[in-house]
Amino acid sequence: MAEALVLKGLTMRFQGLHALEDFDLAVHEGEIVSLIGPNGAGKTTVFNCVTGHYPPTGGEVVFMGRRLNGLPPHRITKLGLVRTFQNIRLFGSMSVLENVMVGRHCRSRAGAFSAMFALPSAALEERAIREKARALLAFVGLQDRERARAMDMPYGGQRRLEIARALAAEPRLLCLDEPAAGMNPSETGGLMELISKVRGLGVTVFLIEHHMRLVMGISDRVAVLDHGVKIAEGPPAQIQHNAKVIEAYLGQEAASAED
């Protein structure tokens, strides 16, 4: 299998704080790879470096054979690496459908001029954007809510909407940042199905998640971060029995019990 994403010695420091230290990881095409670790281990920092929101202090991010360091986030998205956010970031006052349509921005081209003068090409493209967005809403099961305001949606719906919006940008690799956070068990089950469906589309999935049943249920491989350092990597069954991993999690629990 070809490598979709390769991280080589990725390092991020904030004023002396080592958020991420010499992190190596390869995600192969068609895989679901999960990144787990205690709170504050640096998982979201990995995403932020990969998607161009933070310039990494050191190391390399290579996507489909192309170095991403220094590219702005929108360029990275256009290359096919799309993310969602841990704290849902929808365009609150836009409708559900419009949110997904924004995701099509990088896959469409009508400019201000053709829009203003209502050129036929722009009208055609606009219709295509709308159809594609509707199809994606149906894909995540939100086809009945397209006219609702994003901020009025229930929590689980917002998570799904964020995934639909990301899919609209036609990712080859989708980075999901804690998509199950705050979901009840039945919603989590639905999300698991959705992620498998996304993989069925041929999209590689890179997942940050705390929910162990979800991670162990769908991942091909799992990497574990603790204090910015990768402490383990392997198939889920192997990770569940890794002594270092257990210590990282239990150690954290013991520490929080002392508080």
Binding site: T77, L90, E98, V102, H105, S108, A110
Partner: peptide, 27 residues
């Protein structure tokens, strides 16, 4: 026309959340 177009939509997305808009491929 402009307001209802792809460009207008991207502007409003940017107004609502610049980081998210950028992450969704809006330059």
């Amino acid at each position: 026309r402009l307001d209802k177009s792809r460009i207008g939509r991207a502007w409003v997305a940017m107004r609502e959340d610049e980081t998210a808009a950028e992450a969704m491929g809006v330059p």
